[in-house]
């Protein structure tokens, strides 16, 4: 199962054609919509960094089904445009730190998980997202006390990550080989 996938993503790396740009564009738009919609959900837990992170579903799907480079492009564009559209430019550095750490962890995990275990990437990705955010926050505000939020953020990351991860697993399963045809 892994071999053909690897082969395809290798192939993808070499080509930046109109089809691929369109696909990345559509997926970025999708991620952005999810991101903006999620912003409308009021904060339930008053701790910075606790949120559902639904947009990560798209990142996960792209990394697993289309390719790591496309995943990075979609992620970065979504963070930049997301912060601009929502007027949270000052928060962009936190999202970027979290998003990139999450991306790296997902990429590393991709080597050891099966497609039905994408939710594992969701969980560990969400945890590392929160970790990256808090580390940048500690650096910027020079407040090591912010680390006291870490256990809570790990718990919230596991719950939200399991949910988004499960969504990604579910989508990948339902879509079957349709992503392959899109490429």
């Amino acid at each position: 199962m892994m071999c053909p996938m690897r082969f395809q993503s290798e192939k993808m790396k070499n080509g930046l054609n109109a089809k691929r740009i369109t696909l990345d564009g559509i997926l970025t738009a999708l991620a952005l919509i999810i991101f903006i919609v999620e912003l409308q959900i009021p904060e339930i837990v008053p701790i910075p960094g606790v949120k559902l992170g639904l947009a990560n579903v798209i990142t996960l799907i792209v990394i697993f089904e289309i390719g790591p480079i496309d995943g990075l492009i979609v992620l970065i564009l979504r963070i930049i445009m997301g912060s601009m559209f929502s007027g949270r430019i000052m928060a962009m550095i936190y999202s970027m730190a979290g998003g990139l750490l999450c991306y790296v962890v997902t990429l590393l995990l991709k080597r050891i998980v099966t497609k039905s275990q994408i939710w594992v990437c969701g969980v560990l990705g969400a945890i590392s997202h929160n970790l990256g955010q808090i580390m940048v926050a500690v650096l910027i505000t020079q407040t090591p006390e912010l680390f006291s939020y870490l256990p809570v953020l790990v718990v919230s990351g596991m719950i939200t990550g399991a949910f988004t991860g499960w969504l990604a697993t579910f989508t990948v399963k339902k879509m079957g080989d349709r992503f392959g045809k899109l490429r």
Binding site: P46, P48, R88, M90, I140, T141, T143
Partner: peptide, 30 residues
């Protein structure tokens, strides 16, 4: 006037190891 209002939702603290923070404004109350 921050976008996320997490600092407001944190409510009032009296003796807590967890600070109130407004990350967009880089404000922390310890």
């Amino acid at each position: 006037d921050c976008p996320d209002k997490v600092c407001i939702h944190s409510g009032r603290i009296s003796d807590s190891a967890a600070p109130i923070c407004c990350l967009p404004h880089r404000l922390v109350i310890k």
